[in-house]
Design a protein around this nucleic acid. Structure first.
Lengths: 214, 214
DNA sequence: GTACCTCTGTGAATACCATAACAGAGACAT
DNA sequence: ATGTCTCTGTTATGGTATTCACAGAGGTAC
């Protein structure tokens, strides 16, 4: 039914993720949504209705003009695109304030996407369980990443340690990073990096907040 | 020199913020950078050299074909665009794990952009100073936001409380939000919302990490 | 001085993305 | 039965962002 060879744009896969979460969370009269119209989903996700229809079109999902889209089927279809069949195991590098917040945020939230190990050089954290996740010393990285079949990493260390962490993980087969360090990771083109720069995001808001004030 | 009536694109202002941080942080032989070429700045920031030149062109900043761009002048010029003259005061709503991480992250980091007050209903936090920032009860929001001339808000509460927080802040004149709650805030067009959806970002990485594996 | 080299600045081309516009299908009322 | 309404599915259009390609300027080597 769903064909993985379709090329989804970056923006589209982000929206699919959001559609899914909105569908999972929003109940109608305390029971799961049965069917939903494109404009309803659009309102919940904060996009336009045609964008929703177009996204669903690109993943080959069809709705019913009178009833809308079947929510359960849609969830299933999105899952076929976004989730790896056996789930994806993630390592967190850096258990500082940000790292702990991320642990709290993601633990048990996405069944197919789990942070299964955290690493930090600070002995205050190593060999402890924090927010439900075991924290290891960086010395154990080689062993743990292979044992737990970790495929992606979240980098939440200061800028200076970010490239090192990425390099070590890449040598162990990790092909995707969520990088919170404000530094451009040098990676081969086969590795995907999603860069999140909090300061940049905050300064963007400050800029626009000022514009509208004047 | 710099004309504020130029329209900067969303992407451009994000990159300007990053250029600035990269310039501030990167020393050359332990002293501040004097001049820098577009391709050097591009490598540090993770973009292409043309894009750097284009961005600097749109803010009307000129370089020297032989020496590159004067770093100090560039910092000054970027500051003229991004910073409000007297600085921008920010309120943080929600002092949970994420909120505390943000406090730690932003405190004393950007001189012209300070989180000057935090709000949380949990009495465990109210009337305490956390990461250098005083935490108030939401009951004090009206008074504090006006006293401290707060112009923007960071929303780090669960989805269910996000719209309420935004509404209260907007009534007090706040015109920009950085929203971490995975919910579409309903705001008038005069208010800017920068939506950060961590789960979406993580799932995007998982998707691409899987693609490259196959 | 002249040829050459490197970098900036920028118009043109391209790629990407979202919106607009509309065809098609089914339900419903009259 | 026929017209109308609403929603999906899809193509056409427009706008925006980035890259391409090259002109211009100044320094350097010889």
């Amino acid at each position: 039914m769903t064909n993985d060879s379709i090329t989804l744009s970056d923006k589209t896969i982000g929206r699919l993720s959001l559609y899914r979460r909105v569908l999972e969370r929003t109940p109608k009269n305390n029971k799961p949504i049965g069917h939903i119209f494109s404009h309803e989903l659009a309102a919940l996700a904060g996009f336009s209705a045609v964008l929703v229809r177009r996204d669903l079109m690109t993943i080959g999902f069809s709705g019913n003009p009178k009833k809308g889209y079947d929510a359960a089927e849609l969830l299933d279809c999105i899952g076929k695109f976004l989730d790896a069949p056996g789930g994806t195991n993630v390592a967190l590098i850096g258990v500082g304030n940000l790292g702990r917040a991320l642990l709290a945020y993601f633990t048990y939230r996405r069944p197919m996407l789990s942070i299964v190990a955290a690493f930090d050089a600070n002995p205050e954290f190593t060999n402890r369980v924090i927010q439900g996740c075991r924290c290891y010393s960086p010395d154990d990285m080689e062993r743990v990443v292979q044992e737990k079949n970790i495929r992606m990493g979240i980098i939440a260390v200061p800028s200076v340690g970010a490239q090192d962490a990425a390099d070590r993980l890449m040598r162990l087969g990790v092909t995707g990073f969520l990088n919170f360090a404000p530094v451009a990771l040098r990676v081969p083109s086969s590795v995907y990096v999603n860069q999140i720069d909090m300061t940049m995001e905050l300064e963007k808001v400050a800029f626009y907040a000022r514009q509208t004030k004047e």
